[in-house]
Design a protein around this nucleic acid. Structure first.
Lengths: 357, 357
DNA sequence: GCTCATTGGGAAAGCGCGTTCCCATTGGTT
DNA sequence: AACCAATGGGAACGCGCTTTCCCAATGAGC
């Protein structure tokens, strides 16, 4: 990777490197018209491409935004990534991608790697965990982030603050009203469904999942309904599938003497909901005839799924964008107080999958 | 972004920067045991993180892999990205992401940006285009890539070579047998379907789309079937939807005197197929009763779609991995001739959506 | 006991660029 | 005509690190 350098350009144009730099890479001082032209031509003819590493070194700022996701192939993260990417383009920066599988240890490594590259800011998407087994990892992640921020880095986290983080200088959180939205979803579902509710949740300690579970239960309570049973499983399609199999068994072979239960299943995200639905179908059950089902996120690719999935629409792309912008400081020139990052809102979207028979 | 530097660590440990460097960042020379330990401790206590920019500058290699996709939120690209990401991790490199929307101009810019960052290699996913309107853009893209390669960069392209590229030093192509697979798909479909075939293709000139169309026609021909009509539309869901509407009209209101045609629709990718299916359904038609439909790619998220979509399974993640590895030179130690990158193969997968009534 | 290879550490020269400081021209004042 | 401010260009340093080169100290070999 040895391209032509600024010095070479300068020599060819018969000027000093300083002048060439002023011409080619925006500086306060503008050299004379003729010189400018000469340098431009020299650069052109040599195919000069400025070395961003050297530039970064010299002005200590890299033009890089680090993005941390669990899995880029998961449509949830892919959607957020699109938003981040877009915002990055606005800022004339590039996105550095790290996928971690969700473990705080890998996340810590990713943050360190970003810090090493002197990324200007870091966006962390993906549910925080407060499971005890992640405790140490979280602490180290928090420490790493603190250090990064103290060194002037900007961090934005989607959803929840990193457990244990203490710095707030340059530390932003894009809050997602998971709990409230789940509550509203429960309320609307309760209005049109008189059977029981079951929740298919992620592992306990996954904050996003927990919020949605809690909100849903609150919604049921306010609607005067009994609390729903909570099945804990993996936070992905296959987790949903497993839960679906279990539920299908229960629906097809109810306890002796009971009638088949009329179940409305709330899976805490769309991908799990699809998995659950697939399992029910594989067991010969139909939706919503034999069981209703709802998800959360309103993943774009899944909107053509039939029966159309009731869910909560989350503006994932906006979320990515907001998070990225939050790291920018105030929006363009304005000075305002930490420029409220435009609260994220969602929308309960009832569709066919929860229509009463 | 000012963290502690190697010099500071060295001073604290009471050694020279050279020694500190040797200790902390792998070097051929290993300093003595006690010194090593002293430096380690100093680094630890200062929370030293090496400046990758400076390292890159000094050894002119950045540890960066550039990935170019049309749209990271498209599950096709997201799957490839996952593979790239994995392979990057193997190589202890980070992935720099650029989304271009598919235009050669944006792709050229992305390549230039990667070159500026001195990315060690670049992976380009996404269909090449040979439309006349893209001609100039392609030429410039090719020129940019040539330059990048001449400077020692490694490039891997998924699918087709960039139109007009001339260098082959460090220029790799992961070929995808789109044509052959489409041919096989047509053959298998023809065996079980006696109605007409229609192809919903992308804009003419999109190489991937063209290959699949051509292959499918070949397959029909070899099966003794007449060529299929080709509908040109956008290479995404909404393009598929539009085509679906059009076809629905034709199925519901056949020309006077004709019977409703028995159509088998081949959409050149899964996302388009889903769009087409959605349109048919919106028009009150059922699949496969009123029309059969098949796609291409076998996108993971779409596998739970009902009726299950007939398609061609493409190992997208592997493709990303292979492309990334191809840029690495020979696999680990081995010297072999350009180490054949393990040909990509796919698999025709017939499912419910094309079952004869 | 002396020489010679070897080891282990430091000094210094870059890597490519931005930027500060300094110097040589100008053009305009009184 | 002499002087000063303004303008435009260059020399040189620093960003943080790697790496070559050099030197001192050690051990082996005769």
């Amino acid at each position: 990777m040895a391209a032509s350098t600024l010095t070479e350009v300068a020599r060819l144009a018969g000027v000093s490197p300083a002048t060439a730099s002023r011409v080619l890479n925006g500086s306060a001082r503008k050299p004379g018209k003729d010189i400018t032209e000469r340098v431009r031509q020299a650069a052109e003819s040599l195919g000069y491409i400025p070395n961003a590493q050297a530039q970064g070194l010299a002005k200590s700022s890299s033009g890089l935004i680090g993005l941390i996701v669990h899995d880029i192939a998961d449509p949830y993260f892919a959607a957020i990534a699109r938003g981040v990417q877009e915002a990055a383009r606005e800022q004339h920066k590039m996105v550095l991608l790290a996928t971690t599988g969700g473990g705080p240890t890998e996340e810590r490594e990713a943050v360190a790697a970003f810090a090493a590259r002197r990324a200007d800011s870091i966006v962390i998407a993906g549910s925080r965990s407060c499971r005890t087994e992640d405790q140490d990892g979280n602490a180290e992640l928090a420490a790493e982030l603190d250090r990064y921020c103290r060194n002037g880095g900007q961090v934005a986290v989607v959803g929840h603050p990193v457990v244990g983080a203490t710095v707030q200088e340059g530390y932003h959180v894009v809050r997602v009203p998971n709990q409230e939205l789940a509550r509203r979803l429960a309320a609307e579902l309760a209005a049109g469904w008189d059977g029981d509710f079951v929740i298919v949740g992620g592992p306990e300690g996954l904050l996003t999942s927990d919020d949605r579970v809690r909100g849903f239960q609150e919604g049921l309570e306010r609607a005067g309904r009994p609390q729903a049973e909570v099945l804990r499983t993996a936070f992905n399609r296959s987790g949903g599938y497993d839960a679906g199999l279990q539920l299908a068994g229960r629906i097809k072979a109810p306890g002796s003497g009971e009638a088949a239960p009329k179940l409305c299943i709330f899976a805490v995200n769309d991908v799990m909901a699809i998995g659950t639905a697939a399992a029910l179908r594989a067991e010969g059950l139909r939706i919503p005839r034999d069981a209703a089902i709802a998800g959360f996120d309103d993943i774009e690719t899944l909107r053509d799924f039939r029966p159309a999935l009731s869910t909560v629409r989350l503006p994932l792309e906006d979320i990515g964008r907001l998070a990225t912008r939050a790291t920018r400081g105030r929006p363009d020139g304005e000075e305002g107080e930490e420029a409220a990052p435009g609260a994220v809102t969602g929308e309960v979207t009832l569709r066919r999958s929860t229509e009463a028979a």
